[in-house]
Computed example of a mutant assay.
Amino acid sequence: MNWFYLASLLAAWAGMALIDARYRLVLWRAPIRSVVLVLFSSGLLLLSDGWAIEKNIFVRGESVFLSGVWLAPHLPVEEPVFLGFLGYCTLVVFSFFNRHPRVISVANATGKNQGSH
């Protein structure tokens, strides 16, 4: 068993938590609401995963980076951790740009958001 992917996900969680703490964006601003939102979004995504597994859209893939611990057929233990990180990351990024709109306006003013012509 290899725990590399799970360890990487936990490291990403820690990094996101440091950014969150530095700017007081999500957990350090409204901890109960943030946890509820992350759990709710993760639950919805797990439901969609369950549906996709049932329809054979998602199948068990083998990787040396997975722990080998399965919560259900085709559902590794890393999946809910990833889905939680996805929800938390979304909240942090949205909150950052919502609280710091100048970052977006500077990018618009300098043309950095426009593609190459």
Rank of each mutant, 00 (worst) to 15 (best):
G43P: 00
K112L: 15
G111F: 02
L83D: 01
I19L: 14
G111E: 06
N56Y: 07
S48V: 11
T90L: 14
P101N: 11
W70C: 06
V103N: 08
V93C: 11
R102L: 15
F97K: 09
E54R: 14
V69H: 12
F4W: 13
H100F: 15
F82G: 02
F40R: 00
I57Y: 07
L83N: 04
L37P: 00
L44K: 02
G115Y: 06
L86T: 11
V93F: 13
F4E: 11
R99T: 13
Y5S: 02
V26F: 03
R29Y: 02
I32N: 00
W28F: 15
K112M: 14
F40T: 05
Q114N: 08
N98A: 13
S8F: 09
R33A: 06
L39F: 00
R24A: 11
R102H: 13
L9W: 00
F58Q: 04
E54Y: 14
R60T: 08
F58H: 06
E78D: 09
N56T: 11
V77Q: 06
Y88W: 09
I19N: 00
V92N: 05
V64H: 08
V38I: 13
S116P: 08
N113V: 14
W70T: 04
V36R: 08
W13R: 00
R102S: 14
K55F: 09
N113P: 03
F65K: 05
P73K: 07
E62F: 09
N108G: 07
S95I: 06
A107Y: 08
A52S: 13
V77M: 12
A14G: 09
